[in-house]
Simulated assay, not measured.
Amino acid sequence: MAADLNKRRWSWSLIDFGALAAVLLAVGGVIWSPKLSGAVAQATGAMQPVLVTVDVRGVPVADPAGLIESARAEGKVNIVIRNQPHGTVKLKQISSLQRRLVAVQPDGSVVTAVDPNQAMVGSLDARFLLEGQGRKTGGGVVFGNQNLKIGAPVELEGAQFRVGGTVSGLRLEDS
């Protein structure tokens, strides 16, 4: 009887293959995890400061100046890129943008003036300058595990607001 047990060889069953596949998928998920790749990039020095300029235009707000001041007081905003939360980034600067009216005169000249309705209507036109960590790739700047380019829509969220804007500038700073 003992001789029969020694002669039996272990063979692979369908359950063994399934368990092996699950282990390999788990290991692959850990290796290619965006958070892990970001941590590896930061550890190797591939991450560097990125300045992102976001323009927000025409958002109806009862008190635009108050919203700008509350954002300045917070000093940070949450950023959402392509419906994927990135996290909190530092708000370096926020400035109000003036809308301008353009009129062509009968003689062909162009005249511009500040829009007088902007103060009465109560809409937010502002430029947010954000600072975060990113890395340069062949396809642009990777910011928050998302490839970010000028013209990309983003959402900015503070304690009292959530506004949609467009990336109007990207600059990698040398560290």
Rank of each mutant, 00 (worst) to 15 (best):
V154G: 02
V110Q: 04
L25S: 12
V23G: 05
V27W: 11
S168C: 12
L130C: 05
T112S: 00
G38S: 13
V104T: 03
V110D: 03
V54K: 00
G140H: 03
G164R: 14
L67K: 03
V142M: 06
G29A: 15
D115A: 05
L67Y: 02
K92S: 05
A119T: 04
S13M: 14
A73N: 13
F17V: 12
A43N: 12
P106F: 15
G132Y: 01
V59R: 05
R135S: 06
A103T: 02
V56R: 02
V40T: 07
A119G: 06
A21Y: 08
L130T: 01
K76Q: 10
A21F: 10
G151V: 06
M1Q: 09
W12S: 12
S13Y: 11
S13N: 14
A43Q: 15
N6W: 15
L24M: 12
V80Y: 07
Q118P: 02
S11G: 13
L14H: 09
P106I: 07
G144V: 04
L51N: 04
V167C: 04
L170W: 01
K35E: 07
Q48N: 04
A41Y: 01
D174G: 04
A43G: 08
T88D: 11
V77R: 01
A41K: 01
G151E: 11
Q98A: 09
R100E: 00
Q84V: 12
A22H: 08
V154I: 10
V61R: 06
G29M: 15
L97Q: 09
N145M: 06
M120K: 08
L97A: 12
R57H: 08
G151D: 07
Q98C: 09
S175F: 11
K92T: 05
